[in-house]
Amino acid sequence: MSEVSPERAPEPDDLALARGGDGAAFTRLLAPLRRELHAHCYRMLGSVHDADDALQEALLRAWRGIDRFEGRSSLRGWLYTVATRTCLDAVERRGRRALPVDLGPAAERVVLDGRPDTETAWLGPYPTPGDPAERYERDEAVELAFVAALQQLPGNQRAALLLFDVLGFSAAEIADLMDTTPGSVNSALARARRRLSSEEPEFEQRRTLRALGDARVRETVTAYRRALERGDADALVALLTEDVTWSMPPLPHWYRGRAAVMEFAVAVPLTRCPSWRTLPVVANSQPAVAFYLGSSADAVHTAWSITVLELADDGRIAGLVSFLGAEHFAAFGLPEQWS
């Protein structure tokens, strides 16, 4: 799952200028690495908001310490050191994030008026803008199941796994980065891999999407959007696998199996929600849909959820995670209202 990217060596003049206090030169040095550093912070913390804060703090620390960067390691490696340590500090302060499926069994009946769980720190979606076909091909290691599984690991195991398996650092480099020994890194790696293997999460959505092809993925997404917009239960059920799951953080309850999911869908989004408008987006390098809810077809529609889809090998929907709340829309470049 490696996403190692070649690092272009910084211009000597920019590095010297940055060490001398030139903020513009420092910005130029960071530009090629900002996106991957942000993705690393998201994988560590499970939240775009937390990743924004961590990256901002990390870059401030890096700016304050750039005069001490001697070039014995790569600039990329040094920045990952600063970002990882910043994220580990955040993990200590804020704990881990979760999805409803991590916290309890599926609901046995439809919960019509469930209250949001405001005590749990919920995982959030990650915007991966650009052409969908391009995004499904590119390995950014931000698949929802993978990031959710990472959140169950202690911070040091999370960091070691990401730095070694995703980013391609050696155990010796990670030991230096985390101020520990290679033996401790290898031990953390082994424990992290055993934990993830025992939970058997699905990390291969990217392969499924690539095998299906963009046209087939788009067909499923369009059919799903149209079924919700028309309130068409028959069209929706035809899109679902037998063991489909649907969760809606921050609501704690979730549903498993086509019958349970359809019972919920008929009771709530297909009948109790007067009008939907939808837009296809890409979240966590997976197909997703932005939903806007209105009181009628000609009313102003308000941001409701970003729903991330997991597709099965036959193109049907195997999982839906609807991240409820207008606060998720800004990261996707979407407005909170659609008039």
Rank of each mutant, 00 (worst) to 15 (best):
V110P: 12
V111S: 06
V111P: 09
V111H: 05
V111M: 06
L112I: 05
G114K: 01
G114W: 00
P116Q: 06
D117S: 12
T118N: 10
E119K: 10
L123S: 07
L123Q: 05
G124N: 00
P125W: 04
Y126E: 12
P127G: 12
P129V: 13
G130E: 05
D131V: 12
P132D: 02
P132F: 06
P132A: 13
A133N: 04
E134R: 12
Y136S: 09
Y136P: 01
E137V: 14
E137R: 15
E137N: 12
R138I: 01
E140V: 15
E140D: 12
A141H: 06
A141W: 06
V142I: 13
V142E: 05
E143C: 07
L144S: 12
A145I: 01
V147W: 04
A148R: 12
A148M: 06
A148V: 06
A148I: 04
A149N: 03
L150Q: 09
L150F: 10
Q151S: 09
Q152N: 10
Q152L: 14
Q152G: 15
L153G: 08
G155L: 05
G155I: 01
G155P: 03
N156M: 07
Q157V: 00
Q157K: 00
R158C: 15
R158A: 15
A159D: 12
A159M: 09
A160D: 07
A160K: 03
A160C: 14
A160L: 02
L163P: 02
F164T: 11
F164A: 11
F164H: 12
F164P: 01
D165N: 08
D165Q: 14
V166H: 08
L167G: 00
F169P: 05
F169E: 09
S170Q: 08
A171L: 02
A172L: 04
A172M: 06
E173Q: 14
E173D: 13
E173A: 12
E173N: 10
I174M: 13
A175G: 15
A175R: 03
D176I: 03
L177Q: 09
D179P: 01
D179A: 13
D179K: 02
T180E: 13
T180I: 07
T181P: 11
T181I: 13
T181M: 01
P182F: 03
P182E: 05
P182T: 07
P182M: 08
V185K: 05
N186G: 08
N186F: 00
S187C: 02
A188V: 07
A188M: 11
L189M: 13
L189R: 06
R191Y: 10
R191V: 14
R191F: 09
A192H: 08
A192Y: 00
R193G: 14
R193A: 11
R194D: 11
R194E: 10
R195E: 15
L196T: 15
S197K: 14
S197C: 06
S197T: 15
E199D: 15
E199A: 08
E199F: 04
E199G: 13
E200Y: 04
E200H: 07
P201C: 13
P201V: 04
F203R: 05
F203A: 09
E204P: 02
E204A: 15
Q205H: 11
Q205P: 03
T208W: 03
T208C: 02
L209V: 10
L209Q: 07
L209S: 04
A211C: 00
A211P: 03
L212P: 10
G213H: 01
G213P: 11
R216T: 13
R218G: 02
R218T: 14
R218E: 07
R218Y: 00
E219Y: 03
E219M: 01
E219Q: 11
T220S: 14
